[in-house]
Design a protein around this nucleic acid. Structure first.
Length: 427
RNA sequence: GGAGAGGUGGGAGAGUGGCUUAAUCCAACGGUUUGCUAAACCGUCGUACUGUUAACUCGGUACCGGGGGUUCGAAUCCCCCCCUCUCCGCCA
């Protein structure tokens, strides 16, 4: 949510930001409604002030034995008029809010302007020592689907039988490898980057979804339990960020770093056929998510740090990756700035998105009403929120299986995971 | 699913129609005292919107879980809903 006052005072800047994000510009309507709103509000408040003044007089008049009938009759009329004004105010506010809710966050000034993913900017690339692109071509290389089937560690067909396509089943050492990966990532962030581990609810209410900005725009993309009006989380960002909804934090509590593993559920409505085989697009996947609640002036420094935290996982696993700065047109609804981390898939011969690290500035905090008390000024202000996948296991699993396969089609378990799996090779 | 209790400021917690400007305590902030720390004492201390201003300056309005109602006037009375806790039932 943007600050209405900011929109009122900087309409041109807001319009530009919205347009650069390929979203619908409703600034003119918002400003018009805001004008109506304030006009009605001042009329209503003036009458209320009158009402309060008179009410305060009544006990005195009664004590003095004066007749209050005329005043009561007049005040009755004032009360009716107030009710009328407040009703029209309610209507205007409703319209205004339904527009405001759809206004995206504005891109940070450092974000390149662009229409689509094609205009994202590569910031850096990291390759393990001795790695060369295309070296794989000398030997037959199996993709993750073939490997999973051959080794009996992944079963997409049975997942489809049980639930539907896009619900993978991990078996035996495949399941152990997945579990090892999750444990490794959690421990790594807790031990080396000072995150506090969280196991949150996997179903959340509507207010939480609104708080982090999934609702209204992405409502269709989520699984919804109608009976209880609960949503299956599309990412741990939702429950973890909402832990502090409607709270005023002490400045001394900040920054707060959380990390949590959860399964994530996405309907992926309308995306069939595109990158959809195997792990490339699933309805359920595992993700370790980092969430930061920080003071506003530190959030861009924190964005660099959270990105580095995600990268350090890939360095430990010796997986080639690159970091992209998303252009304005590819930024998500709530993000002001975002880095995507893509891992290399030798079989697909392309980069796959495995992490997204974003600064939401005060956009989510405003929606979720998360504030802190500034010690110096003793004023409350919205915090800034960030999050980053650290990381999603499915895409990462593609890179691991494909990169660590031997000529015989076995998988060597990455060194850092071996103490978690208890075995060194699959197959 | 049934019965009961409850929801008040950053936290605890009083408040049964106008003397509430929501008491009091704690926390926080400023100060006094003091070798230092602690303690004690004094003072300040809600949020949002809105108008105004050089200024968070000064004014107005709203807010006691949410929404309606009664009344000249509601934290307080009435109705509906939500949530939390306890007990019972059912179940992992």
């Amino acid at each position: 949510m943007l600050d209405l006052k900011y929109i009122r005072e900087n309409p041109a800047l807001v319009k530009k930001g919205i347009t650069n994000k390929n979203e619908k510009d409703t600034v003119d309507q918002i400003i018009e409604l805001d004008k109506d709103r304030r006009h009605i509000l001042s009329q209503s408040e003036e009458l209320k002030a009158q009402k309060n003044r008179v009410s305060a007089e009544i006990p005195r008049l009664k004590k003095a034995g004066e007749n209050t009938d005329a005043i009561f009759a007049e005040m009755k009329e004032v009360a009716d008029k107030i009710k009328e004004l407040d009703e029209s105010l309610r209507v205007v506010n409703e319209k205004l809010n339904s527009l405001l809710e759809w206004v995206p966050n504005l891109p940070h000034t450092s974000v390149p302007i662009g229409k689509s993913a094609a205009e994202n900017v590569e910031v850096r690339e990291w390759l393990p020592e001795g790695f060369e692109f295309g070296k794989e071509d000398d030997e037959p290389i199996l993709d993750h689907l073939e490997l999973g089937k051959k080794l009996g560690i992944l079963d997409f067909e049975r997942g489809a039988k049980i639930a539907g396509s896009g619900f993978p089943v991990y078996i035996g050492k495949g399941a152990a490898l997945e579990r090892a990966l999750i444990n490794f990532m959690l421990e790594h962030h807790v031990d080396h980057h000072k995150y506090t581990e969280i196991i949150p609810p996997l179903l959340v209410n509507r207010e939480s979804m609104r708080g982090t900005g999934q609702i209204p725009k992405l409502e269709e993309d989520m699984y919804h339990m109608e009976k209880d009006d609960l949503f299956a989380i599309p990412t741990a960002e939702v429950p973890i960020t909402n832990m502090h909804r409607d709270e005023i934090l002490l400045e001394s509590q900040l920054p707060i770093y959380y990390v949590g593993y959860t399964p994530c559920f996405r309907r992926e409505a309308g995306s069939y056929g595109k990158d959809s085989k195997g792990f490339l697009r699933t309805h359920q996947f595992n993700k370790v998510e980092m969430v930061k609640l920080v003071k506003p002036e530190t959030s861009y420094k924190e964005l660099e740090m959270i990105t580095a935290d995600a990268e350090s996982i890939l360095k430990s696993l010796l997986i080639p990756y690159r970091v992209l700065m998303l252009c304005t047109g590819d930024l998500s609804f709530a993000a002001a700035k975002c880095y995507d981390i893509e891992t290399w898939s030798p079989a697909e011969n392309k980069w796959l998105e495995a992490s997204s690290c974003s600064n939401f500035e005060d956009f989510q905090a405003r929606r979720a009403n998360i504030r802190f008390r500034n010690v110096e000024s003793n004023k409350v202000d919205f915090i800034h929120t960030l999050n980053g996948s650290g990381l999603a296991t499915s895409r990462l699993m593609v890179s691991i299986l494909e990169s660590y396969q031997t000529p015989e089609g076995k998988i060597i378990v990455p060194k850092v995971l071996q103490k978690y799996t208890g075995f060194e090779i699959i197959g």
